[in-house]
Every structure is written in structure tokens, then in C-alpha cells.
């Protein structure tokens, strides 16, 4: 697993992000995105710093962080693979695609391989509904998944 920064370091880097973004109207989501970008997740140690910086309660900040699917409590694997499981992809066999990927990687959705190479997640629509089934690997979009593409993806995340 990647080394986690010490909480004092988290606090100071978080404070710098807050300072940069706090003048936006409704700054909390942009701040959380930036924190996740910086640390790969939203560390617990950052929450009191945000609460303090924005004059919110810790409960309010926790409430927001835990509401949104995007914000992670733990760092993800080196790669993040999202498989679309929404209706358009279902009509083109996304369930079978997911089953195959899960089997090849030996993990379920929301899981990370033991070597930390990849985290697998379901996603409900990537807007690639005319090229189903689709996936997103580290922000790169992939359409019309077939066995060959699945094997390519798995090989790439494993390397």
C-alpha cells in the first residue's frame, strides 16, 4: 500500500487547498475534489481542518463527504477501473463483462487487488450509451468492450 502522509502534513496541505479555494461561492465540493486529487482520497485528518476553515461543524463536513460516491475514505489502487452497469450497457451484456473482469482480477466491485494494482468500481452511465458496454480506466474511456479488450485492460492494470 502507498505510504500515508502523517496527519500534520495532511493538515498543512489541506489548509493550503482551503486557502486557495475558500473564496469561491460554495467552495466545499471544489475543495474536496482538490483534496482527493492531492491525497488520492479524503483523509479523516482533513475533515476538522475543512470544518474549521469553512466555519462548518465536523458533522456537516462528514455528511457531505459520505454523501457522494466519488469521495474515498481510503486510497484506491494504482489504477481505477470503472465498468458501466446502467441500462444501455446492460442491454449489451455489461453483466457478463463485469463477471469476467471480476473473475480475472479476483475481486468484486469496490474491491482492490491485494497487490494494490487496481480498484474495481461500478459506474452508472459514462454517456457512451451508443458504444456499449463501456468502461473508464484512469479517466480514459473505452467502448464496445469485448473479450479481447477486457484481456488487454486486465493485462495493462496488472503490469
Amino acid at each position: 500500500m502507498p505510504m500515508q502522509p502523517a496527519s500534520t502534513e495532511i493538515a498543512s496541505r489541506t489548509a493550503a487547498i482551503i486557502e486557495e479555494l475558500k473564496d469561491l461561492e460554495g467552495p466545499l465540493l471544489p475543495i474536496l475534489h482538490e483534496i482527493q486529487e492531492e491525497f488520492g482520497h479524503v483523509p479523516q485528518a482533513a475533515l476538522p481542518v475543512i470544518a474549521d476553515g469553512l466555519n462548518l461543524s465536523r458533522a456537516e463536513v462528514h455528511g457531505v463527504v459520505s454523501f457522494y460516491h466519488d469521495f474515498r475514505g481510503q486510497p484506491a489502487g494504482r489504477h481505477v477501473l470503472k465498468l458501466c452497469q446502467a441500462e444501455a450497457c446492460q442491454s449489451m451484456g455489461s453483466e457478463a463483462v463485469a463477471a469476467k473482469v471480476k473473475q480475472l482480477l479476483g475481486i468484486d466491485f469496490h474491491g482492490t487487488t491485494r497487490d494494490g494494482s487496481v480498484t474495481l468500481e461500478p459506474v452508472y452511465c459514462l454517456g457512451l450509451c451508443a458504444c456499449s458496454p463501456s468502461a473508464m480506466l484512469d479517466g480514459e474511456v473505452i467502448g464496445r468492450l469485448d473479450d479481447e479488450k477486457i484481456e488487454e485492460i486486465v493485462a495493462e492494470v496488472r503490469s
Binding site: 465540493l29 471544489p30 475534489h33 454523501f67 457522494y68 460516491h69 466519488d70 469521495f71
Partner: peptide, 8 residues
Amino acid sequence: EIRVGAGA
């Protein structure tokens, strides 16, 4: 301004 959602 452009704002980004968070998966909800």
C-alpha cells in the same frame, strides 16, 4: 464557472 459533481 464550471463546477464538477461527485458521482451522485
